Computed example of a mutant assay.
Amino acid sequence: MTSQATSFFGRCKRAWRHMASGTGAGKRAFPPATLQAIEQAITLGEQRHRAEVRLIVEPGLDARSAFNNLGNRQRARALFAQYGVWDTEENCGVLIYINLAAREVDIVADRHVGRLVADTEWQVICRTMTTGFAQGDFHAPTLSALEQLNTLLARHYPADGSRPNQLPNDAVIL
């Protein structure tokens, strides 16, 4: 078997895994009580810092994207743009993107916040989630990661008075 054939079959397997992870997987991993807790954690966190946080869960990529090896980071950046996370007054949007089929998490931060936080700090937050997700737990690791994120943002980008909420605080399940 050639490496080209292995690559083709590997891509087919990846596409199948993403196609098999439908909306039901997102609802099972993130039931209403978890979604409500996420929204509350984002709301309370944004009182401590000036950043705007958005969390998006995608059960799986479409077959074409998965087959063509669209990376998690690429997809996160596309959603960052699509959902207007970049469109905040202080360029302070932060997106947490969760891909359930791949069990991967990426954080994309707008330029103002991104300059203040080291990549290693974002990676610790992502690892909190992926470690819990590997054990089948989505609720506690997500809330723990949001607390870590809010603490990190409060340290690097603290609140300086009241400000309008510029992005919705509810989690999005695609």
Rank of each mutant, 00 (worst) to 15 (best):
Q36M: 07
R14M: 09
E104P: 01
Q36F: 01
L146Q: 10
R48K: 14
A140I: 02
D87H: 14
A5W: 12
T130H: 04
R64A: 07
S7K: 08
L61K: 11
A154Y: 03
R111I: 08
S21Y: 01
V124H: 14
L79A: 11
G24A: 15
A145L: 04
L95N: 11
V117R: 01
K13G: 05
N99Y: 01
S7N: 10
A51G: 12
L55Q: 06
I107N: 10
G93N: 08
P168A: 13
L95F: 11
T131K: 14
P158K: 13
D170C: 12
L143Q: 10
E89A: 05
A101G: 07
G161V: 05
P59H: 05
V53G: 01
R54L: 14
G136K: 13
D137G: 04
R115P: 01
Q40E: 15
D160V: 03
A101Q: 04
A140W: 04
Y157V: 00
G60P: 04
L149N: 03
A145H: 10
Q47N: 12
V172R: 15
W16S: 12
A101L: 04
V85C: 11
W86D: 07
E147L: 06
K13M: 06
D62C: 10
P32L: 13
S21I: 02
D119M: 09
I38F: 08
P141W: 06
Q4V: 11
Q74N: 04
F30N: 03
I125T: 05
A134T: 00
I38K: 04
G132L: 08
Q4C: 03
A134K: 11
P158R: 09
A101R: 05
S21G: 00
W86M: 04
L35D: 01
A102S: 13
F30D: 01
L61P: 08
R64Y: 09
S3I: 14
P32Q: 08
H49S: 07
T130K: 05
T130N: 07
V117S: 03
L61S: 05
V108N: 10
Q36K: 12
T6P: 01
C126Q: 12
E58A: 06
E46T: 08
A51E: 08
A63P: 10
V105N: 06
L35G: 06
R14Q: 13
M1C: 12
F8Q: 06
L149K: 05
G84H: 13
W86V: 00
E58M: 11
P158Q: 13
L79I: 11
Q74T: 11
D106K: 12
E121K: 14
G26E: 01
V94H: 14
H139V: 04
K27T: 13
T151S: 12
A66K: 00
N165S: 11
G10L: 03
H112P: 00
L116R: 14
R11S: 15
A20P: 00
D137P: 03
G84R: 15
R163G: 09
T23K: 12
R54T: 15
E121Y: 03
R14Y: 03
A171Q: 10
R75I: 04
E89C: 02
D119E: 15
A41I: 07
